Amino acid sequence: MADDQRQRYEHAAKILGGDLGLCGCGDSDGSYALVRILLGLTPFYEHLDELRALIPDSGVRHIVSSALDSAGLIEHGTSISGSWITTKGTFLLHVLTEVGGDWDRLYGLGLPHDGGDCTEACWSVDRQ
């Protein structure tokens, strides 16, 4: 794996495991796929019917949307159901699309910056 690709994957793994708190047990593959689908439905205000079909329960939809918001992947104004994708969310969506369901590519990687903090530069589209 090329260094740049490895760094992108390390950042994606940090977002999934750290910022979203998704562990590797249970249905981690399904949760990663759901994150990819949800980010692809942004802005939510243009895809409300699809979002409601995917997650029919409004309480569950609120919790999931809030988790994406807390992780900095989406943001919203007056209503979380109208959220749009952030630069960080766009970065993750690109990586998850690149991985294409081969989630094993995101396992067993170290943390970016030797566990240090990320900056906005980490989410640059130029890194793609």
Rank of each mutant, 00 (worst) to 15 (best):
W84R: 12
S79C: 08
S65V: 06
I80Y: 03
E50K: 14
W84A: 10
V35G: 02
Y32T: 00
G110M: 11
D104R: 12
L106F: 04
H76Y: 13
L73R: 01
G110P: 06
L68Q: 04
H47I: 08
A53C: 10
L73N: 00
T87I: 07
I74N: 00
G100H: 07
D104N: 11
S81H: 10
G40W: 02
G100V: 06
A67C: 13
E46F: 06
D69S: 15
Y45F: 09
T87K: 09
S81T: 10
D104L: 11
S70D: 15
W84Q: 10
L41S: 00
K88T: 03
R61Q: 14
W103T: 00
Y107N: 04
D104C: 02
A67F: 08
S70V: 09
R61H: 10
I85C: 03
I55L: 15
S65L: 15
G100I: 06
Y32P: 01
Y32V: 03
F44G: 00
A33F: 10
G108H: 07
L96G: 06
D49T: 09
R52A: 01
G40V: 06
A33T: 09
L54I: 01
G59F: 04
V99M: 05
G100M: 09
I37D: 12
L41C: 04
L96V: 06
G108T: 08
S66A: 12
E50Q: 14
I55A: 00
L54N: 02
V64Q: 11
G108A: 10
Y45D: 06
F44Q: 01
T78D: 15
L51Q: 06
E98S: 12
T78C: 14
L34H: 02
G110S: 13
D49R: 15
H47Q: 14
L34M: 13
L48S: 07
L109K: 04
G72W: 14
L109A: 03
I80A: 05
S79L: 11
T90E: 15
D104P: 00
F44N: 01
R52S: 04
P43S: 11
L96E: 08
Y32D: 05
T78S: 15
